[in-house]
């Protein structure tokens, strides 16, 4: 190989390297755009649903993909009813509960449940707190919702089973959430 050939070979290598660099950069930019759009500009494509810890002290969330076929607000309650996937967590919603309808006004959502939410409930302050706040925390995960009002078969209620005041909208409860 003479000097010229080697020289040409070097040029070729450089060309390849340049092309590679461009490719890598382009990929990085695309990834960045994708990443940013997903995290900062995009719509949340998952939900977080809250379940009770085994000792009934805290709530802990699991993520679920949003089912595009369903109404999101019904999906949340379905996921809550279906219960947790991981061990050590427990469902908080009694059997037979149905979300009859909901109404969003401003940043408050009013959830209208059937009476089974009360009638099939196991009672207790801890039980009531975990049920109510698993619902409240799951719905307020979305930035569009700040507070949740719970009504039963269209009627406003003071409490679910005798403890927690439901006459006013409830906000996300951080204290009940188990820190990771």
């Amino acid at each position: 190989m003479n000097f010229k050939d080697r020289f040409m070979e070097l040029i070729d290598k450089r060309k390849i390297l340049a092309v590679l660099r461009i490719l890598v950069l382009t990929a990085a930019v695309i990834y960045l755009i994708f990443f940013l759009s997903n995290n900062f500009f995009g719509v949340q494509d998952y939900i977080e649903v809250y379940f009770s810890t085994e000792d009934a002290m805290y709530l802990k969330s699991e993520t679920r993909d949003i089912d595009q076929e369903k109404d999101l607000h019904y999906q949340i309650i379905e996921e809550l009813l279906a219960g947790p996937e991981s061990e050590g967590l427990r469902a908080t919603i009694p059997d037979g509960v149905k979300l009859l309808d909901y109404n969003i006004e401003g940043k408050n959502i009013t959830l209208n449940f059937n009476n089974e939410l009360r009638e099939n409930h196991w009672g207790g302050s801890a039980g009531e707190m975990l049920t109510v706040y698993s619902i409240v925390n799951s719905y307020t995960f979305f930035k569009e919702i700040d507070s949740v009002s719970i009504i039963l078969e269209g009627e406003e209620v003071n409490t679910l089973v005798g403890h927690l005041d439901l006459s006013e909208p409830l906000m996300y409860n951080q204290e009940l959430v188990m820190e990771e």
């Binding site: 085994e54 000792d55 009934a56 469902a91 009694p94 196991w122 009672g123 207790g124 403890h163």
Partner: peptide, 17 residues
């Protein structure tokens, strides 16, 4: 004065609100 409850039979204890 109340007594507590949850949908599992392992949790227990006293709490004050």
């Amino acid at each position: 004065i109340h007594a507590n409850s949850i949908n599992n039979n392992t949790a227990g204890g006293v709490e004050t609100y």
